[in-house]
Design a protein around this nucleic acid. Structure first.
Lengths: 194, 194, 194, 194
DNA sequence: CATGAATGAGTCTTCATTCAT
DNA sequence: TATGAATGAAGACTCATTCAT
């Protein structure tokens, strides 16, 4: 039943979607939709939740903690793009929709916070292995940027059905790792003197 | 009058905004809003357009072509984050809103295409200077990732009024340049053999 | 089971009450409610009926015919206010609800007619004892007024949990009897000449 | 426009009435109804208010304070029944409807409180003229009973289009005044010793 | 016998959009 | 030109009522 909702939301957007259509597509009557999942808002949150959970599981299952940092990142990215590629419909739109409505900000923020946290952990771990240490906030911003870049490519992927998820993951890995790799080695960039 | 619209759209989102409120905030009557800017959709596009133009101008004005690649990127980023910091209200929300509605996809795609194109040019130019060459598509994806990361941090900045735009720009530069720098030197990453 | 219904109706009103709540409060399933008592309307009528019957019985049991008129009235009133005081919840609301819906008008009219008839009989009996006689319609209107006043005080009592039913009965008796008493003695009032 | 609403509410009751019908009967479109009078609830309150005001004015205009108590009462009653007779449709139903819904209790209570207050004042004035004095609460209850009886006859009148308002007023006056008259003279009734 | 599950029908309410002034 | 007034259309949500189990 959530499948139907996800499809409808992804086709017409949160506001464009009508509960009538959700019900119809799900093959049940409107009151049932309300009985099972409550309000339109709650329904959307449920969708968001399920997709987020699935995605997180896909990633977590791939990026197991005992791999070296680069491989872990790589597997994580591959899982992510693989997921988006397979759920083009669902993910990108839920993501875009969720960003637009204040009401879902929390849900979304939580979801992203979990990912950022993982990435921060990954970076921190790798840094310590190099005998270096960086303030948490710094790492967070870097992680945020990486996640953002990844989401962005995910969005791009969702819009390009012909694109290959694996290849996209490789490209992202290049950008992310070579950048992160340099940072890990203590190379940093500074604004030029004025 | 667009100012009023931007404010209203940014407060309540595209759908949450009512033409009544736009008119009231603009101090004119609703039929005038329609006379001057047409449909709600057109109005929103007009807002989007203006903000995009302003932003592009701010960036273009800072990232002049005759600077070396890294400085050019740096000034561009600084201009971008400066703009977002100064228009927190407007930018992030217009951006988020625009992503949510299919109707604005084109507008948005165009706006982003222009930026990606610039970044691609920048990378290409720098590569040639190094005597190297890379397929356009490859560059595009990298550029896309960089732009995505930047937008993402822009979003983050818009949500953190206390954050410093300049510092954010520096962080982004680190992620972007050190990664891009490596790429420019021909270093690339490959998926591990299975 | 009716108890549950009465409670629900009295809390939320006829329209505000949902069959779901009735069923839940009664501890049975909705189809059973329908099986035993039919439609919501019929259910309400059943409630009305039971409450009316109980009340009539309480009054009839107290106002036995072989008492002198004033004592009979007094005992009737006392029984009435006693009943309302003890069933504050049920009575007043059923009464108010029933008045609002055309569908229950008949039921209610019947119930009141029975009381009015009793009062008319009482007055008539007393009048005849005084050797006087008055047109039936006249008596009916007087009876109607008395009943109305009584119902009204009943309502008031239902809204004032701290008030004493017995005292209220006494007050009503004062109004009713002194008025009725005068009438019984042939004293009547006429509109002033213009 | 309120006329239309009153008519619809009186025909179908508060719940049975649909805003569609109100709009249609008023000859305007639904959004206009909402623009002018807001919510269904507010609309009903507006009706209630207007009818109450009109009625109070009718009564106040007739029962001028400088008349002797009985004449004042008489004129008040006549005005009341005259009003109800002329607005059968409106009054009775508004009154019945208003009683049924908790939401209107306040409005109604206020309206009745004003009347009771007037009657209390009238009784008090008359009592003092007789050199007697009675606790306010006592008077209030008596007044309440009188008002209730009157409302009740009003209801009866509303249901009997063929009945004569003037005659009804006379009857009510008989009940009210002879009763009140006795009370004024200090005659009271006491429960029999057990 | 009892019920969980299902629904058709209908309500209030809102808003983008446009005449007539 | 500018607007106050008006509306068609649509959507979320609820509930009395009934099968199939």
């Amino acid at each position: 039943m959530l499948d139907a909702a996800v499809r409808v939301f992804s086709r017409h957007g949160y506001h464009g979607a009508s509960m009538d259509e959700v019900a119809e597509r799900a093959g049940i009557s409107k009151p049932m939709v309300y009985a099972y999942l409550g309000t339109k808002e709650e329904l959307f949150i449920a969708c968001l939740h399920r997709e987020a959970t699935r995605m997180m599981e896909a990633i977590a299952g791939a990026a197991v903690p005992d791999l070296p940092a680069d491989e872990r990142l790589w597997h994580g990215l591959r899982a992510f793009f693989g997921f988006v590629g397979a759920h083009r419909d669902g993910w990108a739109v839920l993501y875009r929709q969720a960003r637009a409505e204040r009401a879902f900000a929390d849900e979304l923020a939580g979801m992203r916070a979990r990912i950022v946290e993982v990435v921060v952990g990954m970076l921190d771990h790798a840094l310590r292995a190099e005998g270096r240490e960086v303030a948490e906030t710094e790492l967070e911003v870097v992680a945020y940027a990486l996640v953002g870049a990844t989401e962005s490519l995910g969005d791009w992927l969702a819009d390009h059905p012909e694109a290959d998820p694996e290849k996209t993951a490789t490209r992202m890995m290049n950008v992310a790792w070579l950048g992160a790799g340099q940072l890990l080695h203590g190379v940093t960039w500074h604004p030029p003197e004025r």
